[in-house]
């Protein structure tokens, strides 16, 4: 198991429960897609995995170890994260990659860029000049600099056009094929159907379903059915 959640509770600013996960085990390989309507707690679940947020109750484990027993900076280097909007730091693509490791050399940067399907010539490009899709791939490369054991991707294609979306999906699938477990958050079940090897559906802060994508689509549980009914066909 890459991540395990035991009786994890997150509360909102006004004391309401944002997330309550009694028992969740996420497999150590493949593409685990976390779906659900907006506000269901998908991003919160992801941010618990690299301690950008901490639960008020319960334990989150990474490869069997409680996150509180792992140094937080070490944990974050072992669990890469890609955000919804590509975050460009000032400077070139190379400068961006070196934020994760100041000692990174050009040759290593070129290899990382190739892993996400960008030409090595991109190292000298200014990050601000990249298209949305290119910038998001740079962000994936940046997350790979620390040689993580797992990747968290929080709606990484929500600001991209369909073609760039497919490119990112394929790059992510290539990473999972090479042994990198990925947790991918999306509200889009069509995307889930394209990429998921395992599915977790959150509704109102609770795990409403865990299993295959086909199983979720066939579910007649009322909360899930209502969510699926909102999806564009």
């Amino acid at each position: 198991m890459v991540f395990e959640f035991d009786n994890v509770v997150m509360s909102g600013a006004n004391g309401t429960k944002r997330l309550s996960v009694a028992n969740l085990r996420l497999p150590a390989g493949g593409m685990t897609v976390i779906v659900g309507p907006s506000g269901a707690g998908k991003s919160t679940l992801l941010r618990l995995c690299n301690r950008l947020e901490v639960p008020v109750e319960g334990i989150v484990r990474f490869h069997g170890r409680s996150l509180t027993d792992i140094g937080v900076l070490q944990l974050r280097r072992a669990v890469g994260m890609v955000f919804q909007e590509p975050v460009r730091f000032a400077g070139t693509v190379f400068d961006n990659l070196r934020e994760a490791d100041p000692d990174l050399d050009v040759a290593a940067a070129a290899i990382l860029l190739q892993r996400v399907g960008l030409d090595p010539s991109f190292v000298d490009r200014t990050a601000d000049e990249l298209s949305g899709g290119e910038a998001q791939r740079m962000c994936i490369a940046r997350a790979l600099v620390t040689d993580p054991e797992a990747l968290l991707m929080d709606e990484p294609t929500s600001s991209l056009d369909p073609s760039a979306t497919r490119t990112i999906e394929n790059q992510a699938l290539a990473l999972t094929a090479a042994g990198m477990p990925i947790l991918w958050v999306t509200h889009d079940t069509a995307q889930m159907n394209r990429i998921a090897s395992h599915v977790v559906c959150l509704i109102n802060g609770r795990v409403a379903y865990e299993g295959t994508a086909a199983g979720l689509m066939a579910s007649d549980e009322p909360g899930i059915a209502a969510y699926l009914a909102e999806q564009p066909s």
């Binding site: 900076l73 280097r77 975050v87 994760a100 962000c139 620390t146």
Partner: peptide, 13 residues
Amino acid sequence: RAEVEARLALGQS
């Protein structure tokens, strides 16, 4: 915030 959290997520203090 996004930029700061992106740096934190890379393991920066």
